[in-house]
Design a protein around this nucleic acid. Structure first.
Lengths: 237, 237
DNA sequence: CCCGTGACTTGAACATGTTCAAGTGATGTG
DNA sequence: CACATCACTTGAACATGTTCAAGTCACGGG
């Protein structure tokens, strides 16, 4: 889920806050909502329950959040920040590409682990293409960029030597892979989501090997073909 | 969307129909629902509208279908059958692996094309892991098997020579790839979803090349590694 | 000090998916 | 032919996300 959000506040467009009183209410509602989501699950938490627990009227929640779904963004933001922090820790200690990538992926799962049971519940919300919460939506573009930046750091900060063209594309590809891991994780109900861990541990060496191979002259045409495909598919969005 | 459904009827467990009158009502409701979905979109079609249009009471729809979402299964079934038929036509005429795969994938998109605009709307329904409509759910297992069977035909019926281990796994992998294509297609709003077409045309030769390479002795270890990963990840579900 | 403005708050009303207790009628049985 | 059964049907009632017209209240201008 990390990397899927908008960081900005909704009602006040970053102007000088005329009266900051509202921001407090906004936070209160968000805190209450996230707590109830964690305690009871997303679907089981009604807007009325949130309002009542927060001590406000139902309509007030809708003054600050467009819909129930929009409350989820707060959750995204939080995990995004946490993943970023955890990733930095890994990246500061390791120079090899494979362990860097492996560490960042595991850190992402670590961060999301406590929320697995109810992440699945509202996963569909983010999956809908027209939803502003979709990881591919323009509304979550800044958060997506931030997430890709983590993987850029993974690549750039490593001592791996690789084809310059590939180097340029790799961060976004790795982010896409991360989305795939998240997708797998959401569907993974093995104890402690250990299958996801195994997927990471198994896939990282493969990616590492593949990436190293990218410099071999014999594989140059194949690499070109892959990059060309990406280019072709990306056009006219 | 093809390949995600249960084929069996719900209320009557395949016994001798005591009175077949109900089946007619069931069909009527399903037909009406799908028509309205197509005309107005999924979210915009209310259960009351379906009932009214079909000339029955709201509760009657719930006698035959557990929920509004379950009406979608009818749509799945239809497209699954259509895809199967279209695929057979392609497979009867072509022996090379690449064109076989390409043909089947394009056929799948062809079949779903008219529904792209509203497929996206209810896509999230299928994306929820706990939903019985999820392509990975046990409830849609028979439909999933049927879909995989198409890809088994793609592989088995081709004249491609490939590693026997890979040959065993390939159909399911291709189905997984097909799910990926569908995912891409749902998010693809380029005119006529031409990016999806390009993705298929670009990816198929790559897959074909990769599959051919699987027989090379030098790549044997890499192949083993991939197959081992699949095995590891699949365990304890 | 009063008043208007606009941010903030309220809760009733609405729309829609879903449930359920109460029918309705065809069918096989005595 | 009367009747019990049970598949099938009904529509009111319910739960919950969302909207909105009507406040309330702090603050700056007069």
């Amino acid at each position: 889920m990390t990397g899927v959000t908008t960081a900005a506040a909704e009602p006040d467009p970053a102007d000088k806050p005329r009266r900051a009183r509202g921001e407090q209410t906004r936070q209160l509602i968000l805190e209450t909502a996230l707590r109830l989501f964690r305690e009871r699950g997303y679907a089981e938490t009604t807007m009325r329950a949130i309002a009542k627990e927060a001590g406000v009227a139902v309509g007030n929640a809708y003054y600050y959040f467009d819909s129930k779904e929009h409350l989820i963004q707060g959750f995204y933001d939080r995990n995004q920040v946490a993943h970023r922090a955890a990733a930095q820790e890994v990246l500061a200690a390791e120079k090899e590409l494979a362990p860097r990538l492996r560490g960042v992926l595991h850190a992402g799962i670590d961060v999301n682990e406590p929320y697995h049971s109810f992440a699945a519940t509202f996963f569909k919300t983010a999956a809908e293409p027209t939803s502003p919460l979709s990881p591919f939506s323009s509304q979550s573009s800044p958060a997506r960029e931030a997430a890709i930046a983590i993987f850029r750091d993974v690549v750039e900060g490593s001592n791996a030597k690789l084809d310059p063209e590939l180097r340029k594309e790799l961060p976004e590809l790795l982010w896409l892979g991360w989305m795939g891991v998240i997708l797998f994780w959401v569907y993974d109900n093995s104890p402690g989501q250990r299958r996801t861990r195994r997927l990471i541990d198994g896939a990282v060496p493969l990616i590492d090997r593949l990436v190293s191979l990218s410099r071999l002259r014999v594989l140059r045409p194949a690499l070109r073909q892959v990059l060309a495909l990406i280019e072709t598919v990306r056009k006219d969005d």
